[in-house]
């Protein structure tokens, strides 16, 4: 293990290379550019490929091509770029190709601004492209997790033959924290469906077109079963002091870091407050929320959006308990004190 004080964005790149990713295709956009900048150095230096694509659209399609050959490939961007990539993500999901995409969220809509928001939740978690598909979404809240989840993302992408998105924000990306890196690069698994440019795989076909209605319906059902499997096996969350909590605070990414302070402060005051931090946004920790609905009285969801994740919380609670929203938008990040005040209202 090598430990380094490193920015989250750079941890993504080093993690990706250690996960066996050998190709990076990207387009600059604030606040994700640092990932591309870091990749532009480290990928070629480690024997891989970095290309600054002509567009976000081209970048994701380059990923599609590279992934078709059995290589681990990635791209990263921010909200406006992700909007453009959605076409390609739909094709990747349709063709069942693995890849990793990092979304360093900024504020919208439109050009918005470059400060942090969590307003890409719907477009990422609900699938922003056309057709019936889902992507696995991981939400890190530290530089260590930027590395770990990028590595995990490559494994999940291969396991399920599906794009995986690491959904993060500028704070997590800019922040320096100690990160422990593994001292070995991962082996990239052989993909029997890929095109390795040899006799054995010559007959393979990478496509998302199925003209026969029955076949396409079957394909959709197959994808659906896969997503169900993901929901059964891959849910990740972090629960702090939830067992006896009357009020459950929920938030992901940078917000969960502030909520940690809130819960610790309130616990010191003897208040029964807990924190549930979803780590996977798809699959969402529905079951855990449903369980907590039996023991807790209220839920407070804190998000840097107009209230997007809260809808998934509502679905999971199915009307059993009251849910409240605390939100900031436009790039404003709430202080611990602000969140503390919000939480006190429901105690």
């Amino acid at each position: 293990m090598a430990k380094e004080l490193i920015k989250g964005n750079e941890a993504v790149v080093k993690g990706a290379i250690l996960a066996g990713c050998s190709l990076y295709f990207g387009y600059p956009i604030t606040p994700a550019s640092e990932i591309a900048e870091s990749a532009a150095s480290y990928f070629p230096m480690s024997g891989g490929t970095f290309i600054q694509a002509e567009s976000e659209v081209a970048a994701i399609n380059m990923v599609y091509g590279a992934s078709s050959t059995g290589s681990r490939a990635m791209t990263a961007s921010s909200g406006p770029g992700l909007s453009l990539k959605q076409e390609g993500i739909s094709y990747l999901a349709g063709a069942e190709l693995p890849c990793v995409i990092v979304d360093v969220m900024r504020a919208g809509p439109g050009l918005g601004n470059i400060w942090p928001e969590q307003s890409d939740y719907n477009q990422i978690v609900k699938g922003g492209g056309h057709g019936n598909y889902k992507v696995i979404v991981l939400a890190p809240n530290s530089a260590q997790e930027m590395c770990d989840f990028t590595m995990l993302a490559f494994d999940l992408a291969d396991k399920y033959r599906n794009p995986v998105i690491v959904l993060t924000d500028a704070y997590i990306g800019q922040m320096m924290e100690p990160v422990e890196f593994p001292n070995k690069r991962k082996e990239v698994p052989y993909r029997d469906y890929a095109l390795y440019g040899d006799k054995k795989t010559r007959h393979n076909l990478i496509t998302s077109i199925l003209m026969n209605t029955e076949l396409l319906e079957k394909h959709n059902i197959k994808l659906g079963k896969k997503y169900q499997e993901v929901e059964e096996n891959e849910v990740k969350f972090e629960a702090m002091y939830t067992d006896d909590a009357e009020l459950i605070l929920m938030g992901y990414g940078i917000v969960s870091r502030m909520l940690q302070n809130v819960v610790e402060t309130l616990r010191q005051e003897g208040k029964k407050v807990g924190l549930l931090r979803p780590i996977t946004l798809f699959p969402f920790p529905n079951q855990k929320i449903a369980e907590l609905a039996d023991t807790a009285d209220k839920f407070l969801v804190a998000e840097l959006s107009d209230g997007q994740m809260i809808n998934d919380v509502r679905l999971a609670l199915n009307g059993k308990k009251e849910v409240h929203l605390f939100n900031r938008m436009g790039g404003a990040v709430p202080s611990v004190e602000e969140l503390l005040e919000a939480a006190r209202k429901y105690i």
Partner: peptide, 30 residues
Amino acid sequence: YYYFDIGNVQAAHGRAPAVATGLKRSNKDS
């Protein structure tokens, strides 16, 4: 891809050169 007994990748509209870039950069022998 119905016809050619070679490796086949079907691309999104207009994106074939980007897909081809990814394919070639990943496997330079192809």
